[in-house]
Design a protein around this nucleic acid. Structure first.
Lengths: 136, 136
DNA sequence: GTATCTGCAAAACATTTGCAATTCT
DNA sequence: AGAATTGCAAATGTTTTGCAGATAC
């Protein structure tokens, strides 16, 4: 069973029709842990899909995030990034060079105390500071 | 000592010239815990400052956040909100009605484990789910 | 055959930039 | 006078929308 077949099955399980574009985008997100933007995805897949359009990337990313298949990172304004890894972890942005890194927790992160009646479904953790290269 | 004098002194302490616009914006942020956007600030202060412009709000918010006087909330793309309360707390957005609430932690929040060389300066905590009104 | 999906072009917004007028010291 | 600040108008860049053609079931 190759990766493409696996992805098609996975998308079908989530009631998403595995169009060529969607499968390519999903594969791209699973293979690239670079937290790409819509533009990055478009630029990188454009050669693979000649008629590719950014609208399709926007449509697909909305679909994937709505279904919980990927998560949207809004750590910086005006540039939404996407992460194919939906496990509990945060993101760290270097305030000097702008590079984005994953942020993992040793212990289970504590849950905020919500007033009666609130239902927490998702948490995002964003950090800022200096990366090793910029903190010297 | 009235609030305006206090604000002027506070801004001077942070090497910020207390122009009329800046003092009004700062006062607004301290008195309104509504996490306003640039547009909200502009709309609400426009009557008070006849020649007011959004550019000034953008300039001032950048100045205030750079100096750590207020914090920028980027929980949703395309709509930066601001918080005059810079103490450690998160924000919660109802995925149904879109309302934004403060998110407080009972215990001290645990710090993510950063690889050697990283220097963490700021953390933001964003949560999504249903508010009491929408979870019924 | 009908519903869904794609992609072009235009529109809608938030934010930034250039610059001249104004204000403060 | 000199430096900082303001605010208008234009530009920029991302995301959304309308719609016609293509594709899948």
């Amino acid at each position: 069973m190759n990766q493409l077949n696996e992805i098609e099955g996975f998308l079908r399980e989530h009631a998403i029709r595995p169009s060529f574009q969607r499968v390519q985008i999903f594969k791209y997100l699973k293979n690239n842990k670079t937290h790409p933007t819509v533009d990055t995805i478009y630029q990188d897949l454009h050669p693979v899909i000649p008629t590719f359009s950014k609208t399709t990337v926007y449509n697909t990313m909305k679909l994937f995030t709505d279904r919980g298949l990927v998560s949207a990172i809004t750590i910086e304004e005006g540039e939404t990034r996407f992460d194919g890894d939906t496990s509990t972890h945060g993101h760290f942005k270097c305030t000097n060079c702008g590079e984005l890194h994953d942020l993992f927790f040793d212990e289970p992160v504590n849950i905020p105390s919500l007033p009666e009646g609130f239902q927490l479904q998702e948490m995002h953790y964003y950090g800022w500071g200096l990366c090793p290269r910029c903190s010297k």
